[in-house]
Amino acid sequence: MKSAKDEIFEILKKLTYDVGISGYEDNIRGMVIDELENYADSLEVDSLGNVIAVKKGSKSSKKLMIAAHMDEIGLMISYIDERGFLKFAPVGGITERTLLGQKVKIITKDNKIIKGVIGLKPPHIMKPEEAKQVPDFSDLYIDIGFFSKDEVLKNGIDIGSIVSFDRELERIGNGDIVTGKSLDDRAGLAAMIQAFKNIDNNEVNIYAVATVQEEVGLKGAKVSAFRVEPDIAIALDVTIASDVPSIPEGSWVCKLNQGPAIKLIDGQKGTGLIANKKLVDFVTNVANKYNVPYQLEVLTGGTTDASAMNLNKEGVPSIAISIPARYIHSPVEVVSLNDLENTSILATKVAKEMNEKTILNLINQKIK
């Protein structure tokens, strides 16, 4: 019999293998539907492409929305030269230093995959000042082994073709640590899927929402929250595991393999999410009750879908539960299956403990 950790690994491996950059999440969306439809009382896809699965509450019409985004950072072909080399533009927060020498997958018009590598002028013929600099996107190109623009076009690649890193999920270390592409946020997505499957006897309505286009402005969360109108919202995402040699210990955000991170604040000077204090207390109390290890997170940059859900209509008490990840927004992200499993457990227990009285306590501020 498979362990819960092995089940999560299998879901994660499937989700990370395929390509789903922002705005092109179709293949991932199909996988999410396949995973959730037998566990949902209702399931729909909205006009932007978000998947919304519902488990009806047994005692209350109040709504808890648990969101995780489907999209990954990637590239888009912007120019094809006469020799068959491809220029590209970033989709989402990619830095040039993570791209050098990477293998990539390009999706053709008929949804086939053509593989290539990201190239750069060799160091032997660089000027000394060039060798010291991080190359610009304009210096990089993709080599797919063709020798003319016509050959590229005949094989289904054109301006606007999407590109993802060519990486498979692999276990490293003791087997509980995994590395691969798009763990931001397929790790959170896998945790949400597993949690939704395990939620039962829920008193309030549970909305599991797989969102689109988080990496380019939290777009899916904005429209899906407007549609769902949640009373409480939780985002499951990754955060920075900065426990690595190049970062002083006092500057660490979170550590790998020490449990999910309960976010207190993010964005520049709190411009992202300032988590609802009573909701933070509720989630930490649930974690303590069920002996789920956790960390508290203060992040000075970046944000999650929780920021968008937090500002829906008249405001929604919101929080992010994050899976610590090393090297995020790179082809070699690293997460712990233990953290992922505990994130799923915590989300399940929070949904189980949520009731109408709790929600009313979180949202009502009547003075007289």
Rank of each mutant, 00 (worst) to 15 (best):
I11N: 12
K13F: 10
T16I: 08
G20Q: 10
E25F: 08
N27R: 12
R29E: 15
I33T: 11
E37W: 04
S47M: 01
G49P: 07
I52A: 11
A53M: 13
K56E: 15
K59R: 15
D71P: 09
I73N: 06
L75I: 10
D81A: 04
D81F: 02
D81Q: 02
G119D: 09
G119L: 10
P128A: 13
V134L: 13
S138I: 05
L140K: 07
G156P: 10
G156A: 03
I157G: 03
I157R: 04
G160Q: 10
I162V: 15
F165L: 01
E168F: 04
G173A: 06
K181Y: 12
L183M: 05
D185Q: 04
D185N: 15
F196V: 13
K197A: 15
Y207G: 06
L218M: 15
G220Y: 13
S224P: 00
A233R: 10
L236D: 05
I240C: 01
I262P: 00
K263G: 00
K289C: 08
E297N: 01
E297F: 00
L299D: 02
D305Q: 07
A306D: 04
V316T: 09
I321K: 10
I321A: 04
S322Q: 03
A325C: 14
R326P: 00
Y327C: 00
I328L: 10
N338E: 13
S344D: 11
M354S: 11
N355T: 11
K357G: 06
N361E: 12
I363Q: 01
Q365L: 03
K368E: 14
